[in-house]
Write a protein that binds this DNA or RNA. Sequence first.
DNA 1: CCGATTTTGACAACGGTTTTCATTTTAGCG
DNA 2: CGCTAAAATGAAAACCGTTGTCAAAATCGG
Lengths: 129, 129
Amino acid sequence: MTNRRDAVREILVHSEGFRSAQDIYAQLRADGAKIGLTTVYRALQALADNGQVDMLRTDDGESVYRACATGTHHHHLVCRRCGRTVEVAGPAVERWAETVGAEHGFTAITHTVEVFGTCPSCTAIKSAG
Amino acid sequence: MTNRRDAVREILVHSEGFRSAQDIYAQLRADGAKIGLTTVYRALQALADNGQVDMLRTDDGESVYRACATGTHHHHLVCRRCGRTVEVAGPAVERWAETVGAEHGFTAITHTVEVFGTCPSCTAIKSAG
DNA sequence: CCGATTTTGACAACGGTTTTCATTTTAGCG
DNA sequence: CGCTAAAATGAAAACCGTTGTCAAAATCGG
């Protein structure tokens, strides 16, 4: 049943930024849920297939997930210090990706775009410290 | 000594697109080189640290490397079938990234942009087979 | 309640990467 | 050249996130 899957999604919905599978699993167990790591992975995959969560790879190859507002295509602006995430729509990038692909005769264009930066709060902290 | 490291770089310099460590290792061995996988990894890390090669993660978490023409900032259009790579400059994306970052008060903006598609040759193959 | 189907989860397997550590190679020096 | 210290090398083990296996448990349909 989808009990466990909902539990997994709940975690994501109530999370600020991206979470890893292991991370979610740990929190679920800490919350007292009886769930296995395998099921967390399966739930995450199902959710990602459904477009209910976004998935991306961190620089060290770990998959991280985030519940997104809609199934609409969008990108992320992620604070590299606190992990805070803002969803950003980028018609310009979509078009650019399509264009450069087409210019070189490529078809079935997809693209990954992630923007990293330091958010306002963390910028303040940094300059203070 | 940097003998092995040069061998690794040679492979990359003479390669069209991104290559994986294991891939490079296999070619080196096929070429008759006496080199270990460990050394290939170490060479690749050193090269990447030096900025002599670009490194990125594929969607399935594998690290792939490529010798780049210059240290100039650019992106890649990668054929998801044969791995053929085209370097593309994208002033539009650069500006877009800066803009969305700034809009949300983020500083020290960086971005990762990779475009994937099926190259002309592979598109032909696909429709043929 | 009963059997069929799906879901679950402990555990093993997998695959790429990194570490370990003993051996080999190189550099410095007389 | 011979010697020693330091660096590089590579085979194998360790790591770690992820995926597969398979038997047990939950759920559905009748």
